[in-house]
Nucleic acid binder design. Sequence first.
DNA 1: GTCATATCGTTGAAAGCTCAACCATGGGTA
DNA 2: TACCCATGGTTGAGCTTTCAACGATATGAC
Lengths: 184, 184
Amino acid sequence: MDEGVRWLSQDEQRVWRRLLDAISMLTEHIERRTQQDAGMPASYYEVLVVLSEAPDHTLRMSELASRSRFSRSRLSHAVTKLEAKGWVLRTSCPTDKRGALATLSDEGMTVLRAAAPHHVEAVREAVFDALSEEQVRKLGEIAGTIADGLADTCAAAEAEAAEGDEPGEQAERAGDERGHSARR
Amino acid sequence: MDEGVRWLSQDEQRVWRRLLDAISMLTEHIERRTQQDAGMPASYYEVLVVLSEAPDHTLRMSELASRSRFSRSRLSHAVTKLEAKGWVLRTSCPTDKRGALATLSDEGMTVLRAAAPHHVEAVREAVFDALSEEQVRKLGEIAGTIADGLADTCAAAEAEAAEGDEPGEQAERAGDERGHSARR
DNA sequence: GTCATATCGTTGAAAGCTCAACCATGGGTA
DNA sequence: TACCCATGGTTGAGCTTTCAACGATATGAC
């Protein structure tokens, strides 16, 4: 087995490496700047941005998690920190007692407004100033394609995984080597 | 002040968000797969790949760090872990007593070979199968442009920083508000 | 109503990363 | 030689993230 591996061509390897380089340099750049300008990791900054765009500056934790691409756990820890800094408030949800609401505080809004200009500048510097208009357009397309593709992949993977520990069904269907589930 | 902020246009915002989505989904995808297939974080996998391409499967720590885009500290911690797993060996450099050499062990090579097919597959799935040939070409260009731009930015920033704590010079030139150094 | 199950969110521990401090050696200059 | 500083690498502390386990509430079937 393992004969039919579709290795990467020279060109593909070059593209992949340059992509890895670009991604790591870009995230590092934004990370460093955000830490300096806003006093928090870039991911926390994103969380505040998402909150700032929500009605009443408030969102359910789970909604906030999905919009900022955080796991529930990660968000919970993050909000704990942000709450300690006074930038976010936690309230319990009136309509669903399991739920919790996160609200951007006024201080949080102030910090956000102060950091925003620096943040745009860092983004421009790295991306929009460096690329031509056509490249920006292409980049949008490409990023969209990759993201959509992975969303499908993830959905499929989750569905497959869920199928795996279904307790209502017969559970443990032995000789059913479907697909590449062994790799997951 | 802060009037001349070049905010992002609607289109630019859309591109930036899609880029963030794509990046986080892509890294998460690769991360998860590498963890499952190779039993280590994707960044460690990259370190092993770099070593595997070096003569004698050996590199100076600092060289390995720069080729895998690790800080010295990060690499040192990483190699400690990889050594514990038996995948890398640390030797002291014969020609420079400060130095240390990292070598990929045979077991490390075996692990790498076993994981490689899965790794390529994950990369293909996310990137090369999803994009057209032309998109791949463009992506290569764009990634290269961004990476090169940031390399310059970093170099400039470091130079400026170094200038900052130069002990030989006059140190503390007061009224010298050059550029945007206040933001750094 | 009661049960099983799914969803929401939190928690603690372990792993990884960053940052600043540190020791040791190298390379130059007086 | 003695000195000064730059470089190579390690370390420990603190922070962020992941993972698995958990308690609590909601929802649907019976």
